[in-house]
Design a protein around this nucleic acid. Structure first.
Lengths: 237, 237
DNA sequence: GAGTGGTCTAGACCACGGT
DNA sequence: CCGTGGTCTAGACCACTCG
């Protein structure tokens, strides 16, 4: 009469999830501590720790020293979105990728860009615009500023055949960044570039990347109508 | 003259990142195996494993048994997006949350919804629409179908004062789901509900949640113009 | 087949933070 | 203060997969 064996951290994770779903541990419950669970499950505490930590990472449990582990009251679902290179995004769909350089100039960025790129102080930036095409159809219009303070080597680049992003990630690695998704309506200039009519819905991704405390680049990606981002939520198995 | 101590998995992670950024291990490089690194760093292999596994989760390293660990060629950045309750989304901005029930009826879902909700077979669903307001301003229009096969208890709910989502998550927990972000222009019906003009840009979130293999609900959230999702990318420190 | 990462164990110490 | 999670260790076995 051996009860089901809990020998792997995944099986423990499943069992904990089962107890939560079965309302044995309703939201808000403080569950037993790791040592007790380890004894219940007949395994080492480290194994329990691994399982509970994974569930905490997923937002299902909340853990605090001394206070213990409780089932999250508000199951905030957490979705992990992969942001691939645009080239990969297109070829992964079985389409042919093409890059079309549009403009390049060195200038002082507008106030809003300067605020993040130069931390308010006046600075010079490299402004690059380009179009990425999927099997000859406009896919996304890229409008980018690169900090010449952080990435002076960019000044020597024309970006005529290689996209700025691909050059940057292999030359000026970033430590972190932030990203914003929004919806906008295509102004005439962008609609024309994307081959749609003004007023078409545009999915916009704005991204800024940093090397420690210094901003490297900020880019605005205007996706042609029909674009969407899909991903999964739930227990990262 | 002790060299920098690598005693915590975080310090090892930092050191590995430093070597990657410093081009000591350029993209594509196969780095030494865990046992060797453990000796280099003067720590246990488990500690190295923890550090490298975290970097692999972040998409910076790729690991395969026998093949070893290599620096990712394409630094796919991975963003983690929290999907809170709409109530929380609004109150977190310091606004007053209000829920306005619009309609509720039992019917056969349209073909596209039935495809996911009932796996193609004919079925009955509960169709609920509602408006979430932030300090009296329309914030998001919710258009939801609930499977009465998976969640029969929903038939007894009016959803007049409690949002369907809040009832569902505390009654029919889900195991996983999928989510889609896109941009659309407001059709007249939705523009009116959101208090904007037709043609306004609408950020759309479509989400379907499942209990193992059975779909629970599929919802389409139409956010009022100006909405955006922000998050960070980089090494989860 | 053999090398590599994946995981488990039993024990230990530490840091945080409620009481 | 002292319970709880966070982490490290040294060793072991296993599973996958490349050559």
């Amino acid at each position: 009469m051996t009860p089901p064996q809990f020998n792997s951290w995944q099986s423990i994770q499943d069992e904990v999830l089962r107890r939560i779903h079965a309302r044995e541990w309703p939201p808000g419950t403080v569950i037993p501590n790791e040592a007790d669970l380890a004894q219940d499950f007949g395994c080492a505490r480290a194994t329990v720790n691994r399982a509970l930590r994974a569930l905490a990472d997923a937002g299902i449990l909340e853990r605090r020293r001394k206070a213990g582990t409780r089932v999250a009251l508000h199951p905030v679902s957490r979705a992990t979105v992969d942001i691939p290179l645009i080239r990969q995004e297109i070829t992964a769909r079985g389409l042919v990728y093409a890059y079309r350089h549009l403009s390049r100039r060195i200038a002082s960025p507008p106030r809003d860009v300067a605020a993040t790129l130069c931390a308010g102080t006046p600075c010079e930036g490299l402004h690059v615009t380009a179009l990425h095409l999927a099997s000859d159809a406009p896919f996304v219009f890229e409008d980018r500023w690169i900090s010449l303070t952080t990435a002076p080597a960019a000044a020597a680049q024309g970006f005529e055949t290689l996209s700025a992003n691909e050059w940057l990630i292999s030359t000026i690695p970033y430590t972190h960044g932030d990203i914003r998704f929004s919806a906008e309506v295509a102004p005439e200039s962008i609609a024309e570039l994307l081959g749609t009519s003004p007023g078409a819905p545009i999915f916009v991704v704005e991204r800024t990347t940093w090397d420690h405390t210094r901003a490297i680049t900020t880019v605005r990606l205007n996706y042609a109508p029909g674009y969407s981002i899909t991903t999964g939520i739930g227990t990262p198995s």
